[in-house]
Write a protein that binds this DNA or RNA. Structure first.
Length: 547
RNA sequence: GCGCCCGUAGCUCAACUGGAAGAGCAGUGGGUUUCUAACCCAUUGGUUGCAGGUUCAAGUCCUGCCGGGCGCGCCA
């Protein structure tokens, strides 16, 4: 079904007759409610070529758009199209607002979602933490952002695969195996030097303790590979468990080991070689990535004949491209941003359009308590983990706090504020609005109201109008967040919607002595509840019926 | 030295691919015999780091500075 704003865009385009790009005809939600429900600034773009003032053009266009709406059967939904300071401002009519409520109540959980033909297919790879220890708070943020981007895009009709790249061979996991073995030996009283750059976290010692408990004291005969495998599997299981607790299961796990044994790494290197993009120098094999915009060429095979990390990564992205996605999205930590150029260069070198590979950096997270920073020392291997935050703060608040900022911004995560169950915690503020509505709906004592077809035109109070207008914005807001691949706007919207509801609630009784008005208000709060639930659902946050 | 992100109210941050400067918190003062006060109302707070440029229009784009963070390996 085509939305109102899309039909308005068509009407506007029809009225303008210009070859301006589609974006120029898009309607935005204006910042200020006095500017109406939708606004557009195309008049400014036409002012130059037409040598007329924007306001003059806006006046013409508003009449033309209104006329077009009438012939298209939209006239009843629009009160007026108002030219103001060059902008076109659309004000929905009471019937238009009533229609929004009807749409919400009819579509229920589907309200705000769209379908695409054909559906955009997309792979999102994120978290991809090494299976060598607990997830960090930064991984947690990536988990939240990636998960909600996936949900947002799915809500807009895209086919999304979420994927975790498992770094299950190489130096890092070997170091975990060595560390585990050393701790195990330590527990037995057999002195064995702890590896330099080993994992010093207490979790390794815990892990060694468990090994001893379950498998006895005779494990030092086992080869290093055995310790690597044991340690890695345990860490991986914990990572999966943490993510699951967070409400996140990945559609696909791709392992580096599998990439190698299946021959895909060799194959990728062969492809580059066949294209004449590999050369030997200083005893190493280099990839001529500068031909594709990189700052310098990169080593793929070191002098010791071992591959660098880039080689399997190239193969991995080739494999992702081969699977036929329209777009690949990678979420990385800020420590990887220097890596973007070379990976994009490799995609281009392999003949894939580099603009189909989108790499976004999710910025750092710092923890604080009541404004005071929580020290995070990685040197001793002791740092606040994602699991600790999750256990202390809970899933809902953790998700919300991770998503409250744009991913470009450093995130200051205040543990005390997130935990606090009070008015300054936005999560509870939103959930409370939902619970309040459920309380009203549960207490309804006059069942014959249900038989009334509500007369939504009774909802004339300013607070009711504002609430309906906020509900109207939901689908458009979702669309914008999905297109930007940025969840943060949804948290802002839901807070605003909850506020609009709370204001309405304190001003007006829903269930009163007036049956007709009560029925209308019941429809209004039911629709509000639905949108709050839908929005929270996309954030992966629960919508409690009681608090 | 080079690259990326950030710089907006006392604090934490928005501003949807240039479009009409905003929230929350903190501060101050108020409001519940009624469907949940985890709520609401009022009010204080701005040279958008600095200087130029492009534009009808710049927090947003370009140039140069200043400040904060991160990265720049034949580590992963």
């Amino acid at each position: 079904m085509v939305s109102l704003e899309e039909r308005l865009s068509q009407a506007l385009r029809h009225s303008v007759r210009s070859d301006l790009p589609d974006a120029a005809f898009r309607w935005d939600v204006p910042k200020d409610a006095t500017f109406g429900d939708l606004s557009n600034a195309v008049s400014f773009k036409l002012a130059g070529p037409r040598k007329q003032s924007p306001q003059r053009i806006a006046e013409e266009l508003s009449a033309a758009v209104m006329a077009r709406c009438r012939t298209q059967g939209l006239g009843g939904w629009i009160a007026r199209v108002e030219p103001k300071a060059g902008f076109l401002n659309v004000f929905l009519s009471q019937e238009g607002l009533a229609q929004v409520l009807r749409d919400i109540l009819r579509q229920g959980r589907r309200f705000g979602t769209r379908r695409q033909h054909p559906a955009l297919s997309l792979n999102i790879e994120f978290v991809s933490a090494n299976p060598t220890g607990p997830l960090s708070v930064a991984h947690g943020r990536q988990a939240a952002v990636g998960d909600v981007i996936a949900r947002l895009l799915r809500s807009q009709g895209a086919r999304v695969t979420t994927e975790f790249y498992l770094n299950d061979e190489g130096r890092q996991v070997e170091m975990l195996g060595r560390s585990l073995r050393a701790r195990y030996a330590e527990l037995l009283g057999v002195p064995e030097p702890f590896p330099e750059d080993g994992y010093q976290g207490a979790y390794v010692t815990d892990s060694a303790g468990r090994l001893r408990k379950t498998q006895g004291d005779g494990l030092l005969d086992k080869p290093l590979e055995w310790f690597i495998e044991e340690g890695m599997q345990e860490q991986l299981a914990r990572i999966r468990q943490d993510l699951e607790q967070f409400g996140l299961t990945f559609d696909q796990w791709t392992s580096q080991r599998w990439l190698r044994t299946s021959g895909r790494i060799d194959q990728a290197l062969e492809t580059l070689k066949a294209k004449g993009l590999l050369y030997d120098s200083d005893g190493a094999t280099w990839f001529a990535s500068t031909k594709f915009g990189d700052d310098k060429d990169r080593v793929l095979r070191k002098r010791d004949r071992e591959l660098t990390y880039l080689a399997p990564d190239i193969a991995y992205h080739q494999w992702k491209f081969q699977r036929g996605y329209d777009q690949l999205l990678n979420l990385w930590g800020p420590d990887h941003h220097g890596y973007i150029q070379r990976l994009k260069a490799s995609a281009a070198a392999l003949g894939f359009p580099a603009d189909r590979l989108i790499i976004r950096i999710v910025q750092l997270v710092t923890l604080s308590r009541q404004g005071k920073p929580v020290p995070m020392s990685k040197r001793e291997g002791e740092f606040v983990t994602f699991r600790e935050v999750l256990d202390e703060v809970g899933v809902d608040a953790t998700r919300f706090f991770y998503l409250m900022r744009t991913m470009d911004s450093h995130l200051e995560f205040d543990l005390e504020l997130a935990k606090r169950q009070s008015q300054d915690n936005p999560v509870y503020y939103i959930q409370y609005a939902h619970a309040r509505i459920c309380s009203i709906l549960g207490k309804e004592r006059l069942p014959w109201w249900r038989k009334l077809r509500p007369d939504l035109h009774l909802l004339q109070a300013p607070e009711e109008q504002l609430l309906m207008r906020a509900l109207f914005q939901y689908p458009l807001m979702l669309q914008v967040c999905a297109a930007a691949m940025e969840p943060h706007g949804l948290t802002v919207y839901l807070r605003k919607l909850a506020e609009t509801f709370h204001v309405f609630y304190t001003q007006h009784r829903v269930i009163s002595e007036q049956p007709a008005l009560s029925a209308a208000r019941l429809a209004l709060v039911q629709a509000t509840r639905q949108v709050l639930a839908n929005g929270l659902g996309i954030l992966g946050i629960s919508a409690p019926t009681r608090m």
